[in-house]
Design a binder for these strands. Structure first.
Lengths: 200, 200
DNA sequence: TTAACTCTATACTGAACGGTATATAAAGTC
DNA sequence: GACTTTATATACCGTTCAGTATAGAGTTAA
């Protein structure tokens, strides 16, 4: 194997699978290279360290996720039209999350695990750089909504976190095979529940 | 140190702190015994293995959490009285979670991390025995509610998970010092939002 | 052909890992 | 006090850990 792209990608794919299944700490470099069918110095040649592998892996996937959320989370107010105001934005954001999770289930398992990663974990600081960008985007979005909708004012943070909390539980259910679909209908359902409560 | 209870408790306390901060895999037995100021054979005398420490730790705390939730999660219907039906049950359950998290913040950080623990983690099977009991209790509660309130019917699972998702995000915010209080008012606020949506 | 650069390997490093063998100290019982 | 049981230690075990030194293969340009 002498192709730069193939080797890097191969290593990242093996690392993704292993980190996703067992967590970073429990996966050894030896295990990654065994799965990738290369030797350790090759991995170190490309990535310098185990953490280097982790860093590049997170850059690769979080960049995608964050771009996706960045693209759909801009709130432009239409307070007089329910179907052109908060509702469609949240449906779009939710659908984007669902789409991403369906396309990259292994990575999304890592995203879920990262949500509550212990702060003294050896890779917390690396993870932090990428993971919380989406939080900022969502928070920004809710602050925009709070400017127009006064009953959201001063609740932006908890709404933003609650919303993401619900999205993540839906995705976790899907990834656990407890829910068979994650589509636009599900997104609408989720947003409807979030916006209007359990009776609606 | 020759007191059985003191040594066991001491070891468990050190393990709790370390597991909470760094995750099980990243904490070595040497580190635990150094913190506990004992030697390894002493730990092995009481707990047989590193996993034994983990198991006993989880039994100690999950038993408390699960009992607490068991006690307050029984739904007895009062559909004609809002303040004697779903609302107060959910407030009580939420308050119980808050109380537990405030009393045992270190352990609750572990609970949060356990929520999305990778399935091939070496301690997933141990954790699973204790962690999901609360899920079952909540699910059972929501099924009871769904028998009386037909608009909850067929949504029990996602409501149950969504509810816990929100509770956990509130607690996570508190544990991250992003929210200064977790009291009965906060619980009411959470339940109100959950039941009635973001505008209410 | 040679030199330089890129890529991949074998063999190795010292430290750390979970756990163990054995001796001894401390506590309990008769 | 003698004996038994419980509790704690020193020293050790084989394996695994992340990472490294060095050699060699392949490619390219002069």
């Amino acid at each position: 194997m002498n192709n730069l792209t193939d080797n890097k990608e191969n290593i990242l794919n093996c690392a993704l699978s292993l980190f996703s299944q067992k967590g970073y700490e429990a996966v050894s470099v030896q295990e990654i290279v065994s799965n990738a069918k290369i030797t350790k110095p090759t991995l170190y040649y490309y990535f310098k360290s185990k953490e280097g592998v982790y860093d590049k892996l997170l850059i690769k996937y979080y960049t995608q996720l964050n771009s996706l959320i960045e693209k759909v989370s801009h709130y432009s107010a239409n307070p007089d039209s329910y179907f052109e105001d908060i509702y469609p934005i949240l449906v779009n954001v939710t659908t984007s999350y669902f789409t991403f999770a369906k396309e990259t289930p292994l990575f999304y398992r890592m995203v879920l695990a990262n949500q509550y990663m212990p702060k003294s974990s050896s890779v917390y600081e690396i993870m932090k750089k990428y993971h919380y960008i989406q939080h900022d985007l969502l928070l920004k979005m809710f602050y925009s909504m709070g400017e127009i909708h006064t009953n959201l004012k001063n609740k932006e943070q908890q709404l933003s976190f609650s919303y993401l909390g619900i999205v993540n539980t839906y995705i976790a259910l899907f990834l656990s095979d407890k829910v068979s679909t994650l589509n636009c209908e599900k997104a609408k359902e989720l947003v409807h529940q979030f916006m209007h409560g359990i009776y609606a």
